[in-house]
Simulated scan of single mutants.
Amino acid sequence: MFDDLPPDLERLEVLRTWHVMWVERIDAKMARLREREAQQARVAAATEERAPDWLIEYGLNRDAIPNAVHTGDCTMAGKRSKGVDSNTARRALAGGVAACTFCRPDTELGILEG
């Protein structure tokens, strides 16, 4: 088989000691990396923001007039959208802000047209 190791016990013990030291170093590094990944996962979970249930999209002008209401997961909502609660979304729809025709927040909120 493989007989490229030293023939005497003394050198074999030195090699074994050296390899044990390296395995311990590797194990310690792996433990540190696992702990770092676990810590990062805990931080990410703690800071992860929950998506809002409702969004109000604002226009481009300086006065930022609301121009549409969306559900929180609507893919048609623009970058100028802000998360709001259901009462604010209802008030906006009742005040004449348009409901998104894609996600239909008025239907989700139980507001009927007319």
Score class of each variant (00 low, 15 high):
19 H>A: 14
74 C>Q: 01
85 D>C: 01
43 V>Y: 11
7 P>T: 07
44 A>P: 08
12 L>W: 06
44 A>Q: 12
16 R>M: 03
90 R>G: 09
64 A>L: 02
109 L>Y: 04
15 L>Q: 14
57 E>H: 09
83 G>W: 03
37 E>H: 15
74 C>P: 01
44 A>S: 13
17 T>V: 10
56 I>R: 00
2 F>C: 05
33 L>Y: 13
92 A>P: 05
104 R>C: 10
45 A>G: 15
78 G>E: 00
2 F>I: 08
30 M>D: 13
50 R>I: 09
81 S>K: 07
57 E>K: 03
91 R>Y: 04
7 P>N: 07
99 A>L: 04
85 D>G: 08
64 A>W: 02
53 D>A: 14
112 L>S: 11
2 F>M: 07
43 V>G: 05
62 R>M: 11
59 G>Y: 06
103 C>K: 01
68 A>N: 09
3 D>F: 14
20 V>E: 14
32 R>D: 01
68 A>W: 09
10 E>C: 12
104 R>D: 06
84 V>K: 03
32 R>L: 01
72 G>I: 00
108 E>F: 13
70 H>V: 01
76 M>G: 15
80 R>D: 04
90 R>D: 05
26 I>S: 10
30 M>Q: 15
91 R>T: 02
26 I>W: 11
49 E>M: 14
20 V>I: 15
51 A>F: 12
23 V>H: 12
111 I>S: 06
47 T>W: 06
23 V>N: 08
40 Q>N: 13
67 N>A: 01
113 E>Y: 08
78 G>A: 02
48 E>T: 15
103 C>W: 00
109 L>E: 00
11 R>N: 08
23 V>G: 06
17 T>P: 00
71 T>M: 03
111 I>R: 09
42 R>Q: 09
19 H>D: 06
25 R>F: 11
8 D>G: 08
84 V>G: 04
102 F>P: 00
60 L>E: 07
113 E>D: 08
21 M>S: 15
50 R>A: 12
74 C>I: 02
57 E>I: 02
1 M>Q: 13
36 R>G: 11
11 R>V: 09
58 Y>K: 00
106 D>V: 03
111 I>F: 11
51 A>W: 12
95 G>W: 04
73 D>T: 12
